[in-house]
Nucleic acid binder design. Structure first.
Lengths: 201, 201, 201, 201
DNA sequence: GATGAATGAGGCTTCATTCAT
DNA sequence: TATGAATGAAGCCTCATTCAT
């Protein structure tokens, strides 16, 4: 990510927030850098003092939101010992974030994937950290004899994320009226994975 | 999709196959229409006799491959009555296709998502038909008392697809040496969903 | 130089001639590619069917004009046996070309040198061929005992060209009214070099 | 030239020397003002306290080096009465400077010409003063009956400078290993011009 | 005098698509 | 059907310069 200014200045987050809005509205490719600059109230060139290029803005949004997400997730799970309940909370948490930060979610869900670099070159370590929480939780459950030992945490992790992500995508893409309940979807998915991995159902 | 020539001429599939190769190699956005034309051994303009535009080539690949996929899936499942076994075969089938048609899978998994139109405007009815097989299978299981009634087939369907798709994506994106076994991943995912949806474990 | 279209099409020379005019008028850096296109009566993009980029236009002008120059010089000198007279004709020829193709000369004299690539990377083989005629003529004179043996043809060649070129530059840069006579300058320079290299004065 | 600070402060020459290095390394156009500032150890804005703009730095280098050159040349020639020997010393002096101040020479020889302003607008009076020494020397020779009266000092001056300059350029542009001897080139050029202008050879 | 964050104009080039042949 | 030369819109980014501190 953009290493240029080490500290998060006020202006930098001004640009980030403007970019989330503009990218959500017009899409990353259709959004012009000058649109973001205008929305942020800075000159076009100023953006390049904080970001390497247009794509770097997108990737920075990802990094920053994932940092926040990761911290908030930790807070949410910290007093929950039961692996099953942790899974349920993880799913609910994920969908709450999607619902409460729709613009950011839309950018992350949809626009980020339109980025060649993200899909092909970028190593999303922050995402791995986020998902690592799930993988660890599976391992804990296995050690406690709650989850079956033959479950591969790697496969479980990506499956679980794929499921959450796909549902989030469908929700984001759906028109307001068609939107299904994210809350109950969270419990459904969590329920399937909890039972699906349990030693004795 | 491109309605222009109703029948599949020889030249059309020449272009389609050329496009799969080129898109897989260079990516959809980086591939030039003239690259596809050159690979197919036709003039640039000829492509526009068979496809509306560049994106139409991509979408046509999707349609055609999905048609094939759907037919082959039907064949694969037709003599399997058990919903559980059908799920397992679905997962195995999906990953077999990915493995055996790597170029096409790469285009569908990765490049298709780089297409704005696909994500935002296109209604992937063929995909729905494909997933509908899964949703139906869940309903059948519920009617037979095998799967829990409170499972929402819609949520289950997208979760299952998301899980398969994310694993396929990770496999496609991974370097050859790091590739995990798709076969065992199929059984893992199927196992989780089967148990996860079962009435009694 | 631009290898793209092997033959000199009509459109290509249309662009070349337009570029000579525009570059002479506005200078290479100030001239926009679209200015050249407009003058040539083609679309901007068409230029890139014949030239790699803006600088390639400039370099192509150099190549083409040098080809012509070289051929015409050969014609001019072909029946002159005396090395001394050949030097005089070379100088006159050079200045005639400058005078008769002022726009082209201005581009070649002035604009070409504003090109980084020309000065630093490009090997001006056509120029070497042109100057090689002079070096050869010095060697001939030496063999005939007309020119002193200790003259280094390489040094003589670059000195002679430097002298012609600097005078041409001063002439091109000078305002119309201040312009000195190129004809007499030719004879002066030729006279100095002829006597300067002669065995006995 | 920059008239802003009349005296040469320490900081000003700090910037000048930094600029010579940076321009020689990266070329005038590729060098950024901030590169020069960094090398000089000052802030970007500070440069504009001493120079009007980027080009002014280049032109100032020219002016300052030419001042030095002119003074040193005067010193070198002051006790040499013979016009012929003065020419020889002039040529040697010129090439010694090129050899001993390679970075500065490279900037002056190559980069200065990439400057539009220099070629088209700037009146290089310092250069004229430098060359004026040669023109005067020719006139002296003519008055003493050593050089032919029909020689035009103006033409001789530019020819001589063109010869020296072109050779210097070839030397600067040549790779280290290919470099010819500037010393013998000096004597060759001087020899040609001395004999070339002499009354009786 | 010195700083350095902010400014914002400006243009080359690509490449999907067209259409006369 | 097929060709392929021609079109032309569209936008990212650099970096010299300014000016408030």
């Amino acid at each position: 990510m953009s290493e240029l200014p080490l500290r998060r200045t006020d202006k930098r987050s001004l640009i980030t927030e403007a970019a989330i809005e503009v990218f959500a509205e017009k899409g990353f490719r259709n959004a012009r850098v000058s649109d973001v600059a205008k929305r942020a109230g800075v000159a076009d060139g100023t953006i390049y003092l904080y970001f390497k290029n247009k794509e770097d803005i997108l990737l920075s949004i990802f990094e920053e939101k994932m940092d926040l997400l990761l911290a908030t997730l930790g807070e949410r799970l910290k007093d929950i010992p039961s692996p099953e309940e942790r899974i349920r909370q993880f799913a609910r948490f994920h969908f709450e974030q999607v619902r409460d930060n729709r613009a950011a979610a839309e950018v992350l869900q949809v626009e980020l994937r339109l980025s060649n670099k993200f899909l092909k070159e970028y190593r999303p370590e922050k995402l791995w950290a986020y998902l690592g929480v799930f993988a660890q939780l599976v391992k804990d459950g296995q050690e406690k004899g709650i989850f079956r030992a033959e479950i591969d945490p790697f496969v479980a992790m990506w499956s679980f994320f794929g499921a959450l992500d796909e549902l989030a995508m469908q929700w984001v893409l759906s028109r307001k009226n068609d939107r299904f309940s994210l809350e109950s979807a969270a419990d459904q998915v969590a329920g399937i994975f909890i039972r699906g991995m349990s030693e004795k159902a």
